[in-house]
Nucleic acid binder design. Structure first.
Length: 567
DNA sequence: GCCGTTTTCGGCCCGACTGTTTTCAGTCG
């Protein structure tokens, strides 16, 4: 059993205790223990030697629970809590605006046990009598519930990919000649609502029948098998003979707009694009791979992530497409947190991991002093951290460590350290962490002021959206991008999955304005640092090439680039 | 539930905001 599994169980206990209404400190003890467990080394070894209580935050009681969990795989207390707190109540806690207190009030006063209950109570006006629930709160809850409803059948990219890869493996194991992931997932959409795959087999009907018995609850419709994935996403697998695999895959990957553009192009060439591929005078042109289909239309094979119908076909017909960013070109792990604020590891540990991952430099940016909840750094601690960063750097050379901060943007657009302190740092990530509810005008002015600040190197997670959870705050993106272009300020593409905060449709606007991108890992633990795949593919979706990305620069050029604005 | 003692219980990271109150509880980051 891994430390993560134990930590996850403890976090669940903490969440359930909170919902139950136990002392918040009781719940927090489990949360702190979960943090400690993640950071602890060989948990199993420590348990064997009876040394679990040497871990800070683990006392006798928790040590016993860990030992029992490691031995049996269960924690009776957790099982009890799961029985006690209905799933719907846990789901309620995911709705912004609903914390343990309000959920308890809703349960006790009118018996709300799930978001569905809340929805009908809201519709029937049964909430207006509940103490503490005024008109504004009801309005906010209504909005949050709508977002929750819309998000219900959706998954973040990585969750969708996990499911799809499981299906893919099963198809290959069943003897598919070829199989591939298609649909939104293949185009690296950040959110998916269904999964699409294509498989080939010499006898499609035979394979469909075999696959149908492999996936419970599946249905065959023509050449397509439908069922539900592990996490409940609808899956469709199209099965074709090998000679049609390329065409079928290309069609299943294409967005509707891309497909329409392909159809128009086919028409211009007196061809027809049908379900099985290109037809010339009623005769099917074989396309064993996607490149064959594109070639028949006079196109190079386009990367899946740009097949969105946003001008890629026209551009490809005009000439070679610009080179898109690839993961290996990222040389620096930037916007990284350490245990100085709310990260789990020391600067040295983060540096060692970055080196192991093949990075050439690290840009440390812990939380600033306004972020008390995250252990934000006072001026004294920030300066002390700088000392430590330099001393670690002296030992890790030629690997470089840049010392900066993730400074809160205050409501008036100011950063939360005096200029002379910011001056001493290598760079500043300026981010909004509060006051999401400002008016569009106020929020725009705030962001523009932060961008214009000569110490702001990069605007961190600019929109404030949390995928599937929270809408972006209201602001005029064009005005902010203009200010960034004018002042040479970079904009962050945050690699934390929920925080993939700049919509890919905005990226071309940044590219056209010449605004540098910075792919910030926002890592809080060593293991999160290398996880840049999704962000890189989102950058590619926005047609971002390596030149536009600051942390593809070699260390010296990066150092120069992050200082340039201040002169 | 842990921790550190003021050795047997009280404090635990906190500041700002918001809406609902009419002095504060709940949420958020």
């Amino acid at each position: 059993m891994s430390n993560e599994e134990v930590a996850r169980a403890f976090r669940e206990i903490a969440a359930l205790l909170e919902l139950k209404g136990d002392s918040p400190f009781h719940a927090r003890a489990y949360e702190k223990a979960a943090d400690a467990i993640e950071r602890a080394g060989d948990l199993v070894g420590l348990a064997r030697e009876g040394r679990l209580t040497e871990i800070g935050g683990i006392g006798k009681g928790l040590a016993d629970k860990i030992g029992y969990f490691l031995a049996t795989g269960t924690i009776p207390m957790l099982d009890e809590l799961r029985k006690e707190i209905p799933k719907g109540v846990v789901e309620l806690a995911r709705i912004p605006g609903l914390g343990p207190g309000r959920i308890r009030a809703l349960r006790e006063s009118i018996g709300i046990e799930s978001p569905e209950d809340l929805q009908s109570a809201l519709a029937e006006g049964r909430l207006s009598g509940v103490k503490g629930f005024g008109p504004k709160l009801l309005e906010d809850l209504g909005r949050a519930l709508r977002l929750w409803t819309e998000s219900r059948g959706l998954r973040l990219h990585r969750a969708g990919r996990r499911d799809a890869e499981e299906v893919l493996g099963a198809l290959l194991a069943l003897g598919a000649a070829e199989a591939a992931i298609a649909g939104d997932l293949a185009r690296w959409r950040e959110i998916v609502g269904d999964l699409s795959l294509v498989a080939s087999h010499p006898s499609p009907s035979e394979f469909l029948a075999a696959a149908a018995s492999r996936f419970p609850g599946s249905m065959i419709e023509g050449t397509t098998l439908r069922f539900s994935s592990a996490s409940g996403l609808p899956v469709r697998v199209r099965v074709v003979p090998p000679s049609s695999f390329g065409a079928a895959l290309a069609l299943a990957v294409a967005s509707p707009a891309h497909r329409a553009a392909l159809e128009r192009l086919a028409e211009e060439r007196s061809l027809t694009l049908g379900e099985d591929g290109l037809l010339e005078e009623g005769r099917l042109l074989p396309a064993r791979d996607e490149a064959a289909l594109y070639a028949a239309l006079g196109l190079p094979l386009l990367p899946p992530e740009i097949r969105e119908g946003s001008g890629e076909i026209e551009a490809a017909l005009r000439g070679p497409l610009p080179g898109l960013l690839v993961r290996e070109e990222i040389r620096g792990a930037v916007h990284v947190h350490s245990a100085w604020s709310d990260g789990t590891a020391s600067i040295r540990e983060m540096a060692e991991k970055a080196i192991a991952l093949g990075f050439e430099y690290l840009a440390i940016a812990d939380h600033s002093r306004s972020a008390g909840y995250a252990g934000g750094l006072s001026i004294e601690r920030l300066l002390a951290q700088g000392e430590e960063a330099r001393s670690v750097a002296a030992e890790t050379a030629p690997f470089r460590i840049f010392h900066g901060v993730e400074s809160d943007i205050l409501a008036n657009g100011a950063l939360d350290y005096p200029d002379e302190i910011l001056e001493a740092l290598d760079f500043v990530v300026s981010s909004v962490h509060s006051r999401f509810g400002l008016s569009r005008e106020e929020q725009t002015a705030r962001l523009v002021a932060a961008v214009r600040n000569r110490f702001t190197t990069v605007l961190g997670h600019p929109s404030g959206r949390l995928l599937l959870t929270r809408e972006p705050y209201a602001f005029d993106a064009d005005a902010v991008w203009d200010a960034a272009a004018e002042t040479g300020t970079a904009v962050e593409l945050n690699a934390h999955e929920e925080r993939l905060d700049v919509d890919w449709r905005e990226l071309p606007k940044l590219r056209e304005r010449g605004v540098p991108i910075w792919i910030g890992s926002d890592a809080h633990a060593p293991d999160e640092m290398g996880d840049l795949d999704l962000a890189v593919h989102i950058a590619r979706k926005g047609w971002i090439g390596p030149c536009a990305v600051l942390n593809t620069l070699p260390a010296d050029a990066f150092a120069e680039a992050i200082r340039r604005k201040r002169r």
